[in-house]
Design a protein around this nucleic acid. Structure first.
Length: 642
DNA sequence: TATGTCAGCCAC
DNA sequence: AAACGTGGCTGACATA
């Protein structure tokens, strides 16, 4: 038996690496012993990288451990060791993992006879417990929810940094921190010791976190709730969604061409690199433009807003006609947008797609400090929604149509429910348009469309904890007019205004923490108690969405789901079933919060995700020569119109 | 080379 | 008195 060790609290904990038949028997005795005792065992893997669904991905080692020992199976050595790992996973009645979905998906795909469905019910995730205890990232002042940070805080401040030490070893073999995981010798002592260390730490961390969650009075039912939500998200991630590789490749090439053409244009004005804000601002100032805006760091600001003003276009890039457009500003805008769309979206899809042209974006089911979800690799929560070209790369499965179901204005409804504001509640129950009501109350019954827009901006501003100054900046109103609008809004919904004030006071009294209606603990920065109302709304809306997702799962609809997007479920179903499935998903998501109904808008599109975004755009761009070069897109637009 | 910060831009 | 929230990601630039 090869034996290494890992230091915890001044003790050297043994890390066993079985290599002979006798060693394997010893491992089996360890596992059956724990199984018979009903003891929870920590599990972890070391892999070639984080790209679980890429063709070259492999599991290198599988580790099992308890507080006083760890076992590292070198599964990449062969099928025998793979089967041994699978056997142990099936035999153990209770497991713990740090970030369960990553390892579970890796095992589901790369170990024999291991399915997500079998692992999930018996696994506790230390990440989930850590997030429930303190939802902040480290850079937000929290403990940090990674294994390293959480262990340093709850288990042993002097535990070695597993990654940092290994990076030196990676460099010695001529690799980097990204490529080293794939190439480090499977017998490297440090690698094996750290692999074992991770499960030792996980098993020691779990009871500490359980105690912490209890001590803080966090709603204990959130623990099974988050495990269930995470499991459904893992199922969605495993399925992934199909891209049209031909279309995406062509789109990427065209975006590259467009970006290059406008970069050439910018060169005429002395901007060699359109991404250099220094060059851009210098050139614009050199052309005689006045730019008053400054960045937080004090530099001349040349962001989208400034460039659009100089290019004399509005938010939708439509000409305003108020001045002579600055051609450099327009060239920078166009070149940057094309390159962002290409690198962040089109190329990211091509890079991450598996051998069947499916992308599996990583779903962080419990991510933000408010518990909202995040999606990365690629970032599918933030594809352009004003135009359809990028989303058109995503296709429903063969014979299927895309479905989108979102909650109808969920955040205002949550605002009304939490504050108990009678006027807002009554308006919602009557089905009135809130912004019309606000505008009528603030400006009188003869309010203009522009005043309704102001009412809408104020509503969002209040929800975000913003003030009159930001509202003035967004609407073009004078500061005093914006102040009047905010005052009018608060007069219209007096109970809401009072609720926001008292919530902030309470948050400060409670050490900048807040308990949401679901019993979740939120923590705020000491200079940002004003953000507490937004935090409570956002977090509550997320929990409603997560509850909706569980109801979708209960009704057997998860196989249709492609992606969760904050308040929207993207799904697909066969042509004949699509409308019925959309209706069922909408019904599953529908619920009420303190008497306020939370309804949904089911929508059925064509064969691409983009088709759901074509309806308005179609008429605007139907004559674009783009269509002539893209029969595929023309066909999709045709279907969208139908 | 790797990492951190700033600036910017995409979404809800 | 006022305070616009939550993310992922790329590229430039400075630094170790």
């Amino acid at each position: 038996m090869i034996e290494h060790s890992f230091p915890v609290l001044g003790q050297q904990i043994p890390v066993y690496v079985p290599t002979t038949v006798d060693d394997f028997r010893a491992f089996q005795r360890y596992i059956t012993g724990r199984a018979n005792a009903g003891e929870r065992v920590a599990f972890d893997t070391e892999t070639t990288g984080l790209d679980t669904f890429s063709p070259g991905f492999r599991i290198r080692t599988a580790q099992f451990g308890t507080p006083d020992q760890a076992w590292v199976l070198q599964v990449e050595k062969g099928e025998d060791l793979q089967r041994l790992a699978s056997w142990a996973l099936r035999t153990l009645p209770e497991l713990s993992m740090q970030n369960r979905n990553f390892d579970s998906l890796a095992c589901d795909r790369h170990l024999p006879d291991i399915m997500l469905e079998a692992l999930a019910p018996k696994t506790l995730d230390t990440y989930i417990l850590s997030h429930l205890s303190d939802p902040r990232r480290r850079d937000q002042g929290g403990v940090g929810n990674g294994l390293k940070d959480a262990s340093a805080h709850y288990v042993d401040p002097s535990a070695p940094d597993t990654a940092a030490g290994l990076y030196d070893e990676f460099h010695e073999i001529g690799h980097t921190k990204d490529t080293g995981w794939r190439h480090i010798d499977i017998n490297n002592p440090l690698y094996l010791s750290y692999a074992g260390g991770d499960v030792i730490l996980t098993s020691r961390l779990l009871p500490k976190l359980q105690a912490r969650v209890k001590e803080l009075g966090i709603n204990p039912s959130l623990i099974p709730f988050e495990h269930a939500v995470g499991f459904v998200c893992a199922l969605i991630e495993r399925r992934g969604m199909r891209i049209d590789r031909g279309y995406t490749t062509q789109l990427s090439a065209e975006l590259a061409d467009e970006s290059a053409r406008w970069a050439e244009e910018a060169k005429k004005y002395g901007v060699e690199n359109i991404n250099s804000t220094r060059q851009v601002s210098a050139a614009l100032l050199g052309m005689g433009e006045e730019i008053k805006e400054r960045t937080a760091g004090g530099a001349v600001q040349v962001d989208g807003n400034v460039l659009k003003r100089l290019a004399d276009v509005d938010k939708q890039w439509d000409p305003i006609g108020s001045r002579t457009p600055n051609p450099l500003a327009m060239a920078i805008l166009r070149s940057k947008r094309a390159s962002k769309w290409r690198t962040s979206y089109a190329e990211a899809m091509l890079r991450t797609a598996d051998e069947n042209d499916r992308v599996h974006p990583k779903i962080g089911a419990l991510a933000a400090r408010t518990a909202r979800m995040s999606i990365s690799d690629p970032p599918f929560q933030q594809l352009p929604s004003g135009k359809w070209e990028v989303r058109h790369a995503i296709r429903a499965d063969d014979g299927c149509r895309m479905i989108s179901v979102d909650y109808s204005s969920v955040e205002p409804r949550v605002m009304a429910a939490l504050s108990g504001d009678e006027r807002m509640t009554a308006a919602i129950l009557r089905g009135d348009d809130l912004h019309n009501l606000t505008a009528a109350s603030v400006y009188g019954p003869g309010f203009t469309p522009g005043q309704r827009k102001v009412a809408k901006v104020v509503q969002l501003g209040v929800a975000y904890g913003g003030g009159a100054a930001t509202i003035a900046a967004q609407t073009g109103l004078s500061l005093s007019a914006a102040q009047d609008a905010v005052k009018g809004y608060k007069r219209t919904y007096p109970r809401l205004a009072r609720y926001i004030r008292s919530l902030q006071a309470q948050v400060i009294r409670d050490g900048y923490t807040l308990r949401t209606p679901s019993g979740r603990r939120l923590v705020f920065d000491r200079d940002a108690a004003y953000a507490s109302f937004n935090g409570e709304i956002q977090s509550t809306a997320r929990d409603i969405f997560a509850q909706g997702l569980l109801e979708i799962h209960e009704r057997g609809l998860t196989p249709h789901v492609l992606l969760p997007v904050h308040d929207e479920i993207v799904a697909d179903a066969t042509d004949s079933q699509a409308h019925e499935v959309a209706r069922e998903i909408g019904e599953a998501m529908t619920m009420s919060l303190r008497g306020i109904p939370l309804g949904t808008d089911p929508d059925v599109g064509g064969h691409s995700w983009g088709s759901l975004y074509m309806k308005e755009a179609t008429t605007m761009i139907a004559n674009d020569s783009w269509y002539a070069a893209h029969p595929d897109a023309a066909e999709a637009a045709e279907k969208a119109r139908a």
